[in-house]
Write a protein that binds this DNA or RNA. Structure first.
Lengths: 150, 150
DNA sequence: CCCGGGTGCTAGCTCCTGCAAGCGGAGCGG
DNA sequence: CCGCTCCGCTTGCAGGAGCTAGCACCCGGG
C-alpha cells in the first residue's frame, strides 16, 4: 500500500514538466523587480520570464507580431479578446490581464488559500494534500525569490 | 440642472429598481426560461428588468444612447471598457457581462478556492496557472467519480 | 563574403468601434 | 391643432484596433 506522502510525491512528479518550466521562470523572476504600470509592461515581463520570443508568443496567442510589439510598448490598447488570447499564450489567467488593463476590479482581499483548499468539498483528501504540498512549495520559492514581502 | 430632491428621488428609484430586479430574478430562478445568446440580449433583459429606459442607462453608464441601442441589438460588439461601464450602470458585476460576451470563461470548481488562488500574492502567475490546472483536473476527477454532487 | 533565419520595430492599410446629429413616433398640456 | 418632451433608431464621421508587408539588425554556416 501507498502512503499519502508517496502519493503526493507521485502527483508532484507527474506535473514535473510544467513545474520545471515554472522553476525556470521563478529563478528568472528573482531579477524582475520593476513594477509594471501598464498591461504591456506586464505582458513583456511575463513573456521574458517564460523565455519566449515576441514572435513565438504572437504565434501561440494568435496575434500578429507587430501588433503584440505595439501592445507591449503601450502604443495600442488591446481589446479584451486579444488580452484573453495573450493570456492563453502566456498560460496565465485572463483575469490577471484584465485587472492590469483596469477593466476588472481586484477581487476581495486576500482570503486564506489553504483554508479554501481544505474546505473545498469538490476535492478528495488526497488531492487536497497534493495541492497543499505544491502550494507551500511555491510559497517558499516565492518568498525566496522576493524577500521584499512582509 | 438637478435639484437635491431630484437626486434623492433618483437614488431611491435606483435602489427600488435594483430590489425589483432581484426579486424578479429570484422568481425567475425557479425556471430559467429566457436564455440570451448574445450580450446585447442580456443587457436589454437586465435593463428592462430594472425598468430603465435605454437613454437613462446610457446616461448612467456614460455611453451614448445610439451606441447602447446598437449594442443591445447585437449590431456592435462593445469593448470590455464599455461593458464594464454598462455593468456599472446596471449595478451588476463586470464578470457576468464578460462571461456573456465570451471573453471570460468561468472555471469549473469551487469559485472560492479558485478566487483564493488567483488573489494570492504569495504566488507567481505561472504558479497560479499550475495550481489551477491541477485543481481543475482534480475537480473533474472528483465529479466523474461521484456524479451525485449537484 | 553572402545567404538564410532569428530578433524586434515601422509604414500603410482596412475595418469597426463609439460618438454627435438628426429622424419619426408616442404621450401630454395648452 | 401645435409645441414640448420623452422614447428608440438610423446616419455619417473621427479615431483607433489589428493586420500585411517590409525595414534594420544579429548570428551561424557555406
Amino acid at each position: 500500500m501507498q502512503t499519502p506522502g508517496d502519493f503526493v510525491r507521485e502527483q508532484v512528479t507527474s506535473v514535473r514538466s510544467t513545474v520545471d518550466r515554472v522553476a525556470d521562470s521563478v529563478a528568472d523572476a528573482s531579477g524582475v523587480s520593476a513594477v509594471s504600470s501598464s498591461v504591456g509592461d506586464f505582458i513583456r515581463e511575463q513573456r521574458n520570464a517564460a523565455r519566449v520570443s515576441l514572435r513565438e508568443l504572437a504565434r501561440t496567442a494568435g496575434v500578429s507580431n507587430p501588433y503584440l510589439s505595439q501592445v507591449e510598448r503601450g502604443l495600442r490598447k488591446p481589446s479584451a479578446e486579444i488580452l484573453a488570447s495573450i493570456a492563453r499564450g502566456l498560460k496565465i489567467s485572463a483575469e490577471t490581464l484584465y485587472e492590469r488593463a483596469g477593466i476588472l476590479d481586484r477581487r476581495s482581499g486576500n482570503p486564506d488559500t489553504v483554508a479554501a483548499i481544505r474546505s473545498d468539498d469538490a476535492l478528495s483528501e488526497r488531492h487536497k494534500a497534493v495541492l497543499l504540498e505544491l502550494y507551500e512549495t511555491y510559497v517558499r520559492e516565492h518568498r525566496a525569490s522576493s524577500p521584499a514581502a512582509s
